[in-house]
Amino acid sequence: MSKVILKAEAVRKAYRSGTERLEILKGVNFTIRSGESVAIIGKSGVGKSTLLHILGLLDTADAGRITLDETDIASIGPVARARLRNKRFGFVFQFYHLLPELNALENVYLPAMIASGTFSWFSVRSKMRNHARELLAHVGLSERTRHKPKQLSGGERQRVAIARALINKPAVLFCDEPTGNLDDKTSQTVTRLLWRLKSELDQTLVMVTHEASLAGEADRTVHMVDGRIMKEGA
């Protein structure tokens, strides 16, 4: 059995909405192993995205324990968390979240720029630009490198976002409803791309979705109901 990368134990999270306290996660236990793909499915508002954000170190849990490579992330400061997000994780969001001022190529190599310091960037710049071009070619956008996000279609934007998520060769790729904002045809294209990349790169993948077709290809499916994991299956 492959090595455990991420582990969540009894994770709880609540938000305050006015005077009301909304408990989103009610003691979630969850494990991700190297190379596997996991689909988290469930109805809207059950805490799928919140779990993904906590696993991806974008948010913190109120209670419970998260370990990354057997290190408790509670002992890690904000700067180190930012560095882990940058180097170990890749994110693909429902709304693409590309920076509108940058073109497709710049958007893709932005995480590589963040990873390198101001001066060391000059030594890796050409290598990373080439890598970004290769990734864009991989997602079928080699002709669109100079285009700004607003000049691209929804599917193209999501493919740029996937290329961006892969630039730093992440240990885990988190996808939050990656096809949620696309039409059926484009959705199928992006789905095929994700599974192709997963198998080609042996990429660990955690995906939040409510689409059965997308979840169907995952190694493991996790059902969430009311802030808890109710069922796991292959």
């Binding site: 700067v79 930012a82 997000r85 969001f93 963040i114």
Partner: peptide, 16 residues
């Protein structure tokens, strides 16, 4: 605001 969130997700520190 959205760009700031994206940069945070991509690993940018508050100082940056």
């Amino acid at each position: 605001t959205r760009d700031i969130g994206i940069l945070g997700a991509l690993g940018s520190t508050r100082r940056a």
